[in-house]
Design a protein around this nucleic acid. Structure first.
Lengths: 332, 332
DNA sequence: ATGAAAGCGCTAACAG
DNA sequence: CTGTTAGCGCTTTCAT
């Protein structure tokens, strides 16, 4: 049988209340009994049950993380960062891949509520937010990560996508490119990146051609398809492509190669997220980097704040992106 | 206040026992009361507390997954596969990245014990197994994944690493390569892959040169370093390299490029794991593929078996690897 | 400084 | 078919 607080109490000749106090370092305990109890605890390999304590304290020591897909390198990195934060604080992280589907998200949300997670990080866009709102109503802290769901009015931390798109485009413009295609994602994250692109184009005094922006879903295959569309144009064929994430950019690289177009000599490509893929691609991919670790830290700090302090004012944190220049971009 | 079973019982005009029964579909309940109760539950948005039920049933509905690093694409895929299995069964998955360090593993192991996970998948090699043994003693089912810790004598599922190494090497030999270097990992996983390599060499009637096998730790940088050692040899410079995982193989590719060695014309490279990196590398990487999804399914099945049936006989499952041929290999 | 006792929300006999 | 009741292992007043 698993050893319980009773076993410890008995063997140490004290009450369970006393044991509880030394476990949690609460109340006043004489140095002598504390030592005695601790001794017995290690002797018995006692591991206090978090489920029992959760029942009374309303704290489970677990937080949930919703991502589109943990197998996507970007979110794998995100998960790792959160895991590290959580670990330091003694929390467990339960991972939930939604595949971007509300249905799956809801399944997970429900599971997380029943599990009574202490907090929730949402990094996967959700349309139908009823369950999230229910969690909010039950005072479960939630912070949005790399996404925004304005209707929720809750904490969020993201990179400044707008600025990222602006930087990427400006860099391409500075290289002399006049025709810059965009492979965008059909989600809000991408929206601001595209806005940044537009702003850069307009500020440069060039005329914006909406047909240069094509929307799709994050996947290498889709990057290829869209790149083909862009590159097979008879006129105004882009000399540079800004892809709203690395997966898409990689697809574009592969497609360009297939079409016999040299990168970066004939075509510059910029990605977003600066995942491990950017380093591995050939040529290595210039990409807009998000400070994932810092962002995760910030998100956790905010979450913890809410967990401890019940009510705090909501904040939206935007971190600065950074353009990492590699070999997929060159002057025209 | 969170709605509890009492609220439901009261509003439905029944006892909490009855509500419990309809929640769990146990005992016999008249269709009428069942309906009534269910009605009230949805009306109240009632979410049964898993922590309360865990306390009595000794089942938390969570399983732990120990991996070296969730940010490593291979383990990200592994995690995703387990997550899918777990999800279907209504379990939550808590992810633990050990970085291959016993210290971290132990921290997590302790957390998982306190959380009273229903089962544990270990995919990260552990030297000091005291805590794992304690879990075993407490009857917590454990299955090893892609590793083996013979002293533990518990269930495990892996790919047949030996065969994978054999296949990769045989393929290289069939291509006419006489000098095949190996970039190995300094962990058990790699050991069998190297054994397979040796067997293939010997069976081909060639003489085994131990100095062709160099051990290191999984990371692109290390792949580069070792590849350089191998490729800068004055004599017996390998015309092919078998890397014990894709990360290492990618490093080798990059180093070869830096040295001006053409792949696959002058040097063939084979990786292991067939991660997304293999598809993205340039040239695309020939790699030994592990049927991750099937392996995860099998591991979960075994784990579940143990969770349900207390005692079952231990088994070691070996799945067949498959060589995926891409563009990093060619006849000499 | 320590302990007794009342829960936390739910499950599982056992009665009825 | 439904309800009563005794825990599950721990935290937390409140006495002592």
């Amino acid at each position: 049988m698993k050893v319980t607080i009773y076993d410890v109490a008995e063997k140490a000749g004290v009450s369970i209340a006393t044991v509880s106090k030394v476990i949690n370092n609460t109340g006043r305990i004489s140095e002598k009994t504390r030592k005695k109890v601790q001794e017995v605890m290690t002797q018995l390999n006692y591991q206090p049950s978090m489920v029992a304590s959760a029942l009374t304290r309303k704290r489970t020591g677990t937080i949930g993380l919703l991502v589109p897909d943990i197998a996507n390198p970007f979110f794998a990195e995100v998960a790792r960062s959160f895991e590290d934060c959580a670990q330091k604080l003694g929390f467990g992280l339960v991972i939930c891949s939604t595949d971007g589907k509300d249905e799956k998200a809801n399944l997970y949300l429900s599971l997380l509520m029943r599990k009574q997670v202490d907090g929730l990080i949402i990094a996967s866009y959700i349309k139908e937010t009823a369950l999230v709102e229910q969690m909010l109503k039950e005072k479960i802290p939630v912070v949005l990560f790399t996404i925004d769901i304005p209707t929720l009015g809750i904490n969020s931390v993201s990179v400044d996508d707008y600025k990222g798109g602006f930087q990427a485009t400006s860099y391409l413009l500075s290289l002399g490119h006049k025709h810059i295609g965009v492979i965008a994602e059909d989600i809000s994250r991408s929206y601001h990146r595209v806005q940044g692109y537009k702003e850069a184009i307009i500020r440069a005094g060039m005329n914006l051609n909406e047909s240069n922006i094509i929307y799709t879903t994050a996947a290498i295959e889709n990057g290829k398809m869209v790149a083909r569309q862009l590159l097979q144009r008879k006129e105004d064929r882009p000399t540079a492509i800004f892809a709203c994430n690395d997966l898409l950019a990689i697809g574009a690289i592969e497609e360009a190669r297939k079409l016999g177009i040299n990168i970066p000599e004939e075509l510059s490509i910029i990605g977003f997220d600066n995942t491990i893929l950017a380093e591995i691609a050939n040529p290595t991919l210039t990409s807009v980097s998000q400070p994932i670790k810092e962002m995760a830290n910030q998100a956790m700090t905010v979450l913890l704040e809410e967990i401890e302090n019940e009510q705090t004012s909501k904040q939206r944190t935007l971190m600065l992106p950074e353009l990492v220049i590699r070999n997929s971009t060159a002057p025209i």
